[in-house]
Design a protein around this nucleic acid. Structure first.
Lengths: 339, 339
DNA sequence: GCAGGGCAAGATAGCGCTATCTTGAAGCGA
DNA sequence: TCGCTTCAAGATAGCGCTATCTTGCCCTGC
């Protein structure tokens, strides 16, 4: 009879599996972990016993004994933004089949909150950490470095010399947008951005560079807002742009939702896109291809970044050598009706 | 000197905190957990020591010793759908300040996968589980029941007698949409749906009931597709509706993205909304208020459901009695230009 | 035939915490 | 003053696993 009221949980333990299959607990442990030194017929017996008891190993005990959890941590700056969802799902798709739990930390674009999350999540002894970009507090970097937990950086490239990164050049993407507008004959291009996180500012920098190279005033027509980007804000900022710079004939938006809001606002105001103002978005969100007019956008490999970053991390865990430090997955200008 | 190469992790332990503050480990443990039987000056000393060492308790050890993790599990059918993001964020906002980790399980609308996730997540000995709806395998229900882990069901109401639920009546929402179309003078209303999960079908049922009560053929004009809903699919299904039932003069969409796709498709085809076809969406997603025409929709309390469900679960954990079994948070018909 | 190597299986000893029991000093009334 | 309760603090004993060391068997080869 089971002892009721003891400190036990009622869940079957490895010891019970071992007893049922007539081996020692350590052999049962090895059998279930697929360690090859166990005889095939014992493995079979143990698996049958485990299945019949509905045994699932206690992750806490496992983590404590082995000094390693089966979890990996992903730190992202926002969940409400559709962007990171695709990346997260791809990460899940890679990690779960390997039995790794994905712990998600959302730091709401707040460096201090990120540092805090890192401190707390390191206590879980994760197998690895996936980070967004390179912009974090020195204390956070210090924590990560001294923990020895493998890290992969997503979205941006470069960063610290030793850092592993999977992403694309935000700056080049900004340049590509500018060049496209110029090629389409825009003489007075403008830039609308929100959130103003480091990646947005890199795109802005690329955009400005390309304008400067074309002999235009790089900072001529910009409307920047610190709040999170949204369709609603896109309409507003577009209105502000028209008020301040009525001559604008092409706009690059740092995110598609802003551009979508602007397209809808333009329709309300009877402004013709692209005849009066061309528009180029960023990220190629699902709605963009269906706007009227369909939105030209820079498609970013969000899912691929998640997948490759996850795989790179697994590579680090398996001790694979010779992995590239820096994976540039590029981006793609998808030209549609709005430009 | 610390022993290198031993089985230890290098992270500071409770024992070190205790040594540094001159108390026993158990007293340090109690001090850090805020257990009131420790003298204030000792608490202070322990906290100072912990801070100076950068001590963060090992969750695995804590979970193993106490038979309880500091995590709660949320099972949702999809992440890519914007719907559950709002709910998830609200749950996080309630749980994290209480020091609870949120483990997210996405079962991709697959009952078998959900059962599997439940089996695996129960091994974490979570403090509680938040579930989506009531539609799951008997084995899953059995697992949950015998685990004794408190559960709260989100999105739908009712279900099993003992179950705690926070949501709204999907059926009533479907009725409300139908009644609104009828009030607006629609004589030949139709219904477009995708995904066809249980909640969608409940809305369909409510919609049909209201039509029947008005003396109309309840199943007259329906276009149902099993694949996930999306803007693109909305345009397609709208096209199918027009092909099969050209007389349709008002459509209820089971999700806003379908309606958005239909509005955009209507614009392309030169079909006037609402003059030729009125449209009513569901969920009031962010873009809906900005469509041209602005989309009438049924606003669902997604964030509130997450928040209330999380609070209800905390209530169960704290052993609060007399909580309502069933919290109906209602919904709101937001009438805009499309109807 | 026997020493030695190889290797499957088991015994042992924790991992870093907390539940529970024990101790001892202080407080209090008779 | 004494015996009682009260309660802060500590000692002890695991939680359920796995790393590591040990055992003992079998197979070689000379």
């Amino acid at each position: 009879m089971t002892r009721i009221g003891s400190r036990t949980t009622g869940r079957p333990t490895l010891a019970e599996v071992a007893r049922l299959s007539g081996v020692s607990p350590i052999t049962a442990s090895r059998a279930l972990r697929g360690i090859s030194t166990v005889a095939p017929e014992l493995v079979e017996k143990v698996q049958v016993a485990a299945a019949s008891l509905g045994y699932v190993a206690n992750p806490a005990a496992r983590a404590l004994a082995s000094k390693q959890s089966q979890s990996i941590v992903v730190l992202i700056p926002s969940l409400s933004n559709h962007l990171f969802i695709d990346t997260l799902e791809a990460i899940h798709d890679v990690m779960r089949p390997r039995g790794l739990e994905v712990l998600i930390g959302n730091y709401h674009y707040d460096i201090a909150e990120e540092e805090n999350l890192i401190r707390n999540y390191l206590a879980y002894q994760p197998r690895g950490i996936l980070l967004t970009g390179f912009d974090r507090s020195d204390a956070a970097k210090q924590l990560l470095a001294s923990s020895g937990v493998p890290c992969v950086h997503m979205m941006e490239l470069g960063g610290e010399a030793q850092a592993m990164s999977v992403g694309f050049s935000q700056q080049q993407a900004g340049r590509a947008a500018a060049r496209h507008l110029l090629e389409r004959g825009c003489k007075r291009p403008g830039f609308i951005a929100a959130q103003l996180d480091p990646r947005v500012m890199q795109r802005a920098e690329g955009f400005r560079q390309a304008l400067a190279e074309a002999g235009l005033n790089a900072y001529g027509r910009e409307v920047l807002a610190p709040q999170p980007s949204s369709i609603e804000l896109g309409g507003e900022l577009f209105g502000q742009m028209l008020g301040r710079h009525p001559e604008v004939d092409g706009i690059f938006f740092c995110n598609d939702d802003l551009a979508q809001g602007a397209i809808l606002e333009a329709m309300r105001q009877g402004i013709k896109v692209p005849q009066q103002v061309a528009m180029v978005g960023f990220n190629d969100l699902p709605a963009s291809a269906h706007m009227v007019p369909r939105l030209t956008s820079i498609r970013t490999p969000r899912a691929a970044i998640g997948r490759c970053a996850a795989q790179a991390l697994l590579g680090l865990l398996d001790g694979k050598r010779g992995q590239p430090k820096c994976q540039d997955l590029g981006f793609e200008l998808v030209v549609r009706e709005s430009s």
